[in-house]
C-alpha cells in the first residue's frame, strides 16, 4: 500500500532533460496512468520510482517518506516489463515463484503466497505450462503474478499490452483494471494509446517533452483539456481546432481573447443545409465518421448510427451547447463562454 509523490523532480541525461520539474501525487491504491508520446519522459519516471535512476533535483516520496538514497531492492516496487521478460525455460509456476526463491523465503510460505496470487489472477490451471504454450493474455497474467507475488507496495507497467492485437487489447485492459481493483495496490501504468489510458486509469498525467501538461481523472482531462496539445492527445478522431474566424459558421460565440475554437467530433452537429461540404463518409457500423470542408478547413464529426449522408453533400454545422472549447494564441484553454 503506497502513495507516490514527485516534488519538482528533474532528471537529465547529458544535454537532454528527460524529466523537467515534474510534480504529481498518486494516491494509495490508484490506477495511475502516465500518458504521452514516445520519449516524453514517461519511462524515465518509472525508473525514478523504481530507483534505477536518481533525480538530479527534487524529491520522490513513497508513502510520504523521501526515498532518496534507498536502493531499488529496498523500495519494494515491482515492475512488469513491456516484453514481459518471462523466463522461457521455466514453467509459469517457476516463473512466479522465482522472486521468492531468490529471496530464500521458506517453501511453505512460497506455496501459500503463490496460491493466493494465482487465485486472484485466475491462472491456477495453467501453472504447469511454459510461457511458449500460453496465450498472450495468459502470459500477461503470469508476468503480473510474478510482480505481485513478493507483495510489493506498488507495481509499475511499461506499455504492457501494446504488442497484442486490437481485440485482445480490449479484453486485456478490462482484465487489468479488474485485477487492480481486486489486488488493491497502487499501479503506475505507462502507455501512449489514448483509448487504453482512458479505459484503465482513474488518474492520469499527460506528458509532453519531459513536462506534465495536465493531471486529473481521464474524464476530467477529456472534458476540460487545458491546452490544444492535451485536447489533441485524447480522443479519436482528435478534437477539431479551427481559427475563431470560423466560429460564426459553427454558430458559436467565443470569449474575449479567444484565438481558436475546439470542437470534439462527437459534439459537431451535421445537418442538411448550407455552409460546409462533406468530403468523406466513413461508416463504422455503430458510428459514422464524416469529414467536412468548412472554408478550406477540414473537420471531422462522429455521428451515432448510420446516418444517410453522401460525399459532396452541402451541410450546415453547429456545436452542442456548452461543448465548445476556446484557446488563446499560446494554445492555453480559456474558460468557456
Amino acid at each position: 500500500m503506497a502513495s507516490i509523490s514527485f516534488r519538482n523532480v528533474t532528471k537529465r541525461f547529458g544535454d537532454v532533460t528527460a524529466v523537467d520539474d515534474v510534480s504529481f501525487d498518486i494516491r494509495d491504491n490508484a490506477f495511475f496512468c502516465l500518458f504521452g508520446p514516445p520519449l516524453s519522459g514517461k519511462s524515465t519516471i518509472l525508473k525514478l520510482i523504481l530507483g534505477l535512476e536518481k533525480p538530479d533535483a527534487g524529491e520522490i516520496l513513497i508513502d510520504g517518506r523521501p526515498v532518496t538514497g534507498i536502493g531499488p531492492a529496498q523500495r519494494n516496487v515491482a515492475m512488469v516489463f513491456q516484453n514481459l521478460a518471462l523466463f522461457p525455460h521455466m514453467s509459469a509456476l517457476d516463473n512466479i515463484r522465482f522472486p521468492l526463491v531468490e529471496r530464500r523465503v521458506a517453501p511453505d510460505k512460497i506455496a501459500a503466497r503463490v496460491a493466493e496470487v494465482c487465485e486472484k489472477l485466475h491462472i491456477g490451471h495453467i501453472l504447469h505450462k511454459p510461457p511458449a504454450q500460453l496465450s498472450g493474455g495468459e502470459r500477461q497474467r503470469v508476468a503480473i503474478a510474478r510482480a505481485l507475488v513478493r507483495d510489493p507496495v506498488a507495481y509499475l507497467m511499461d506499455d504492457p499490452i501494446s504488442a497484442l492485437d486490437a481485440r485482445l487489447r480490449e479484453q486485456t485492459r478490462v482484465e487489468l483494471r479488474r485485477i487492480q481493483q481486486e489486488m488493491g495496490k497502487t499501479l503506475v501504468y505507462v502507455t501512449h494509446d489514448q483509448e487504453e489510458a482512458m479505459s484503465v486509469a482513474d488518474g492520469m498525467a499527460v506528458f509532453q517533452a519531459g513536462r506534465i501538461c495536465q493531471t486529473g481523472t481521464p474524464e476530467d482531462i477529456y472534458r476540460h483539456p487545458n491546452s490544444t496539445y492535451v485536447a489533441g492527445m485524447l480522443g479519436a478522431p482528435a478534437m477539431n481546432v479551427v481559427p475563431m474566424a470560423l466560429a460564426a459558421s459553427l454558430q458559436v460565440q467565443g470569449p474575449q481573447g479567444a484565438d481558436s475554437l475546439g470542437v470534439r467530433p462527437e459534439n459537431l452537429r451535421v445537418a442538411p443545409g448550407e455552409g460546409a461540404r462533406i468530403t468523406e463518409v466513413e461508416p463504422l457500423g455503430g458510428f459514422t465518421t464524416i469529414s467536412v470542408d468548412l472554408a478550406g478547413q477540414s473537420l471531422r464529426a462522429t455521428l451515432r448510427g448510420q446516418p444517410r449522408f453522401t460525399t459532396g453533400q452541402p451541410v450546415a454545422l453547429s456545436v452542442d451547447a456548452g461543448r465548445a472549447h476556446f484557446f488563446d494564441t499560446s494554445g492555453a484553454a480559456l474558460a468557456a463562454h
Partner: peptide
C-alpha cells in the same frame, strides 16, 4: 520498436 527512452 516504439519503445521509448534509450538514453540511459
Amino acid at each position: 520498436s516504439p519503445m521509448p527512452h534509450a538514453r540511459t
